[in-house]
């Protein structure tokens, strides 16, 4: 067990913030135990409901502030799905929008000091990515039958190279959910850990802690950007994978 601790008295535990604790009392965590994961996911759902349902209840032609935020997000994701997958992909727009909203809100809520970031957990992002991966693969076979396998058979390459390329394509196809999930969790986890490490420095440096605090501010700004970008990247990669399933011509 290697704690990040040195003889100068630093006492930094950058990973403690990711701990999962039961909400009520202490004890073993069963699959149904309400934990801080439950709490922050619930908060994400509540915020999404407030923003997207209560915010648009006016149904105004000239939108209020919250309604225009909801409309902007709707338009953003809708255009993304339409641009990447074409008209056929719009059938899956509600699920993609759900993913986007959940990841975006989880990332932003995780940036509140003292909160818990559900998307920093590989289990969560792996379920999201595996859902996309399995859904897209099944959809590809249902829609295209065996033609879906043409995704791995690069017909534009010389014949001798095709088997080699097929192996590479298959490997890269199966790495997709891994990179898809770890990218999100890794980015969020890295940002939070860095902030925590700097915070540990700030606690130890006394009057010079102004420097780590400036750094924390800068990293925090970067994290806000990363939170949005990673939600965007996760969503657009979902669209790209969906496009592969709908149009497997390579």
């Amino acid at each position: 067990m290697a704690e990040a601790e040195s003889s100068t008295g630093f006492n930094i535990h950058p990973m403690d913030q990711f701990q999962i604790k039961p909400l009520f009392g202490a004890g073993e965590i069963h699959w149904y135990t309400p934990t801080n994961v439950t709490l922050w996911m619930l908060i994400a759902v509540v915020v999404a409901t407030v923003l997207l349902v209560l915010g648009t209840r006016g149904r105004a032609v000239i939108p209020s502030r919250s309604q225009s935020i909801a409309e902007m997000m709707y338009g953003f994701v809708y255009k993304m799905v339409e641009d990447v997958t074409g008209k056929e992909g719009l059938k899956y727009f509600p699920y993609i929008f759900t993913l986007f909203i959940f990841i975006l809100l989880a990332n932003f809520l995780g940036l509140i000091p003292g909160s818990f970031t559900t998307t920093s957990h590989i289990a969560v992002t792996a379920v999201l990515a595996l859902g996309v991966f399995l859904g897209v693969t099944i959809l590809g076979f249902v829609k295209n039958g065996t033609k879906f396998l043409g995704l791995f058979w690069v017909s534009s390459a010389p014949l001798a190279l095709r088997p080699v390329l097929a192996v590479i394509e298959i490997i890269s196809y199966f790495v997709r959910p891994v990179s898809h999930s770890i990218r999100l969790a890794g980015n969020v986890m890295a940002g939070h850990a860095v902030i925590k490490v700097f915070a540990g420095f700030a606690g130890a440096l006394g009057v010079f802690s102004i420097f780590p605090i400036i750094s924390i501010t800068a990293v925090y700004g970067l994290e806000v950007l990363v939170a949005a970008i990673q939600a965007y990247v996760f969503t657009i990669l979902t669209c790209v994978y969906l496009n592969d399933a709908l149009h497997p011509s390579h």
């Binding site: 993304m80 641009d83 990218r183 970008i229 990247v233 657009i236 990669l237 790209v240």
Partner: peptide
């Protein structure tokens, strides 16, 4: 979009 996919 391509830029962000590449960066990702």
């Amino acid at each position: 979009a391509t830029l962000f996919i590449g960066i990702a």
